[in-house]
């Protein structure tokens, strides 16, 4: 197992007061597995329903790109949860 840090941004900041979530994931985990871990983590969250709705329409990213669900998770990478964007 390895620990990854997931940065929560925009409306996903409600996931965690610190803005970060730490998840334990399998060594060969994919982005899709990370999503499943986060969904499970949310089961005990007081805003579970609202948070799950946000997660369902969010993607994961690194500092460099949006990730596909089947991509492997690289260690020592900063991950971010990207809800629908509204800049400009």
């Amino acid at each position: 197992m390895k620990t990854i840090t997931l940065r929560c941004l925009g409306p996903a900041k409600q996931f965690s007061p610190s803005g970060d979530i730490k998840l334990e994931v399998d060594e060969k985990a994919t982005v899709g597995y990370m999503r499943a871990c986060l969904m499970a983590w949310l089961l005990d969250h007081p805003l579970k329903t609202e948070m799950q709705e946000i997660l369902n329409i969010s993607v994961f990213a690194t500092q460099h790109k949006i990730l596909l669900e089947e991509e492997s998770i690289q260690e020592n990478t900063e991950f971010a949860l990207i809800p629908p964007i509204s800049g400009g």
């Binding site: 925009g10 509204s86 800049g87």
Partner: peptide, 8 residues
């Protein structure tokens, strides 16, 4: 920017 840049 409206469609691709991670800004909220």
């Amino acid at each position: 920017i409206k469609h691709r840049v991670p800004i909220w």
